[in-house]
């Protein structure tokens, strides 16, 4: 048995020895209790970052390092997504002192290592830090892995927005059903892109999933938005106001992205996930952080840029 982790099926142990069972689970509604369970436990998997800007810059440094490793190893975006989820949940529980930037690197590497093990993707410590001058030995990474595991209470089968896509797609009005694959693919792209947005950790994973699907529906065809929106509001787990706020947050993020993409002269899909844009968003986040009363002095944004290592 392997039990590889699948972002879209966090609750299902994908057991290769019992294909019959797994296939039944993966195809549709074999388990009507699953959404209930997901909604009941999603809050355990959320990460609220403490207000401290130290943590904020730690987050952005860890994110950019993960994206960098993702690019240089051509990794599946879902692996990086899972690693970032671990980083966020770790930082929500433990503070990393501002001066200890090496811990942030160690954290990012360990979370990538754990994510690769969860997804059964072979990634050696060397793959994880090939471009760095200073290499952590496996003993150190191992200790950090254990610290991450105990901090996250071994809840490594993260419940993320991806876990809810299938559920909310079942609310799709019949006339749009034809586009279900395109819609899901587009929403997934939106989720991958918006993970670095600080606002994205303020919402429940289920709300982010619904909002990403709505934004995706609107982008595919504006006429899809309203029927899907009213169908989703029938879902007892969604609140109209929060959903609107979350859609607006995603919209805001996407439009910033587009402007940057235009100024960088490349398409938004490609530019969205480079380490450079990750950092730009951190900077934007830091600046907007000021408006909600955090004590930013601009130094962190500068530090972010300084610490940023561009991929070669």
């Amino acid at each position: 048995m392997e039990f590889d982790f699948d972002l879209e099926n966090p609750l299902a142990g994908v057991d290769h020895d019992t294909q019959q069972l797994s296939t039944a689970l993966l195809l549709g509604s074999a388990n009507p209790d699953e959404p209930l369970t997901l909604f009941a436990v999603e809050s355990d998997h959320m990460s609220f970052l403490p207000g401290a800007l130290d943590q904020f810059s730690a987050r952005c440094n860890a994110h950019s390092l993960i994206v960098q490793v993702q690019f240089s190893n051509n990794l599946d975006p879902s692996l990086a997504y899972l690693a970032v989820n671990y980083v966020d949940r770790f930082l929500a529980k433990r503070e990393i002192p501002r001066e200890k930037t090496w811990i942030v690197r160690l954290l990012a590497i360990s979370c990538l290592s754990l994510a690769s093990k969860m997804k059964n993707i072979d990634l050696s410590p060397a793959d994880l830090q090939s471009e760095e001058g200073f290499i952590f030995d496996s003993q150190t990474i191992w200790r950090m892995e254990l610290l991450v595991l105990s901090t996250l209470e071994w809840r490594m089968r993260s419940i993320t927005p991806f876990s809810f896509l299938r559920f909310f797609l079942s609310y799709l009005p019949l006339e749009i059903r034809l586009h279900i694959q395109a819609l899901k693919a587009h929403a997934s792209q939106i989720l991958f892109k918006s993970q670095n947005e600080i606002k994205s950790i303020e919402f429940k994973p289920s709300v982010i999933a619904a909002a990403a699907l709505l934004v995706a529906a609107r982008e595919l065809s504006p006429s899809h938005f309203l029927p899907f929106h009213s169908a989703l509001l029938n879902c007892e787990y969604l609140n109209s106001e929060t959903l609107t706020e979350c859609c607006a947050a995603i919209d805001g993020y996407i439009s910033t992205n587009c402007i940057e993409a235009a100024s960088n002269g490349c398409d938004s899909g490609r530019s969205a996930l480079t380490p450079v844009t990750v950092l730009d968003h951190c900077r934007a986040g830091l600046e907007s952080g000021k408006t909600v009363g955090s004590a930013s002095d601009g130094c962190d944004a500068k530090m972010c840029r300084t610490l940023m290592r561009r991929p070669t």
């Binding site: 609750l11 290592s113 754990l114 969860m118 410590p125 892995e145 490594m156």
Partner: peptide, 23 residues
């Protein structure tokens, strides 16, 4: 036993599944 590569992947996946089931 833990090996050079840290926590073995299978153990990690199984314990995290056990963690989830034991809810």
């Amino acid at each position: 036993e833990m090996d050079e590569e840290g926590i073995p992947p299978t153990t990690l996946r199984e314990i995290s599944l056990l963690q989830m089931l034991s809810q």
